[in-house]
Each structure stands twice: as C-alpha cells, then as structure tokens.
Amino acid sequence: MDYLEATYYFDYESDEIQNIIKEFNTDTLTPKEKATRLYLKVRDNWWYDPYHISLTKDAYKASWTARKSSGHCLDKSILLIACLRGLGIPARIHLAKVKNHIGVERLIEKFGTNELTPHGMVNVFLDGKWLKASPAFNKALCEKCNVAPLEFDGEKDSMFQEFDNAGGIFMEYIEDYGHFEDLPFDFIMNNIKEHYAEIFQQYEGLTEIRL
C-alpha cells in the first residue's frame, strides 16, 4: 500500500480539494514544505467542532469537509490526508482515544465524559519515515484555551499539546487504535455507539448528531 490513492473518502480528484492544494502544487516547494504549510492551512482555516458528528458516509468525504467552515478531528484529518495525497505525499488515518483536561465543562455536559473517541490524526510519510500530526485544534481556539497551538515541522511527531501555558495537563492519549489504509467508517460508528450509547440511541435513524 503506497497510501497515495484517491478513495471514496480521500477524494482529492474533486474540485474542492484541487482548489485547496493548487497553491502548493509547484516544484519550488519540497514535500516537507508542502506538508507543513498544508497542515497549517487545515489546522487554522477550519474551526474545531467536536459537537457535530455525522452518521453518514458522504459526510466523511474530504470534499464534503472542504465545503464547510468547521469540522471535528476526523473531518480535518481526512481533509489533510486527501490534500497530501493529492500532492503525491503518502498519508493515512490514525485513530485513538484521548482525554481532555482543559475546557472540558461542555464536553462533560454533552458527552458525559472528558474522553473523546475516536480521535483522528494523520500519519504522513516524509524523508523516509512516518510522522504523526494532529491538525484538529485551530490557533484561535488554542489561544482561547490558553494553550500554544500545535505546530508540525515535518521532522518529528506532533500529536498533542501535553501541557497548557500554565503547566497543567491539556490532553493525554489513553488508547491507540492504530492506522488504517482507508477510513474505517464501520469501526468509527461502532466506536461511537459503544462509548456514547445514550447519545447514539437518541439520534438513531438520523444523519447527524448535534450537541
């Protein structure tokens, strides 16, 4: 698997994705420069919203997220993967369970827990090695939560802000589900159903969850 193919979810041949990546589609930039600049574009141009969860396959296509102004970690990771593949840079989805410690009041109110699952991030292949990058938390949100925005330099993993600016714990990874060749839609839906059974039952038969 070369992790360069366009798929149903990573549909980089679409006009929406081509419009995003056209400014980076030049020989004057190295793959590392393309990856780091794309990371910032996806991180900051789509607001992080964990309270809107789609329950249909169509809504997990990269082109779908490209047309929106916000998305949760899965949406933004899918978008970044499609953009990277569209520029010939291997990328794949990586899933985990995480626990937030900052700004969790609304999370606990809506989800009944400060654990978020599945949390989506990106594996990108640069200079002969796989790196982890998480484009979920946009800069404006990080500043609001007193957390430094998560940077990606194309040389080392960039998974989470372990501490806020005051030294408190911001986020921790509590379970690693590994990487996948394509978006594992059924796994994601089953994971949501298992961890948020009451919410899932409340919205069963609908196309989305809005909390």
Rank of each mutant, 00 (worst) to 15 (best):
Y39F: 15
L40N: 11
R43D: 04
R43N: 07
D44F: 10
N45F: 11
N45W: 06
N45L: 13
N45C: 10
N45Y: 13
W46L: 12
W46T: 03
W47S: 12
W47Q: 10
Y51M: 01
H52S: 11
H52A: 10
I53L: 15
L55H: 03
T56W: 09
T56R: 15
T56V: 12
T56H: 07
K57A: 09
Y60N: 05
K61S: 02
S63P: 02
W64K: 13
A66P: 03
K68C: 09
K68R: 15
S70V: 03
H72C: 12
C73W: 12
L74Y: 05
D75F: 10
K76Q: 12
K76P: 03
L80M: 14
I81A: 15
G86E: 10
I89V: 06
P90C: 15
A96C: 05
V98I: 11
G103Q: 07
K110T: 00
K110N: 04
T113Q: 01
N114M: 00
E115K: 00
L116D: 00
T117E: 04
H119Q: 14
G120T: 02
V122A: 07
N123Y: 05
D127C: 05
D127G: 05
G128C: 09
K129L: 06
K139A: 06
K139F: 05
A140S: 08
A140E: 09
L141N: 03
L141M: 14
E143L: 15
E143K: 15
K144E: 11
K144T: 02
C145Y: 15
C145E: 08
C145D: 06
N146S: 10
V147A: 08
V147G: 04
P149W: 15
D153L: 12
D157M: 12
S158Q: 08
F160H: 10
F163P: 01
D164Q: 06
N165D: 08
A166L: 10
I169N: 04
E172R: 01
E172A: 00
Y173M: 11
D176C: 00
Y177K: 01
Y177W: 04
H179Q: 08
F180Y: 14
L183A: 04
P184M: 12
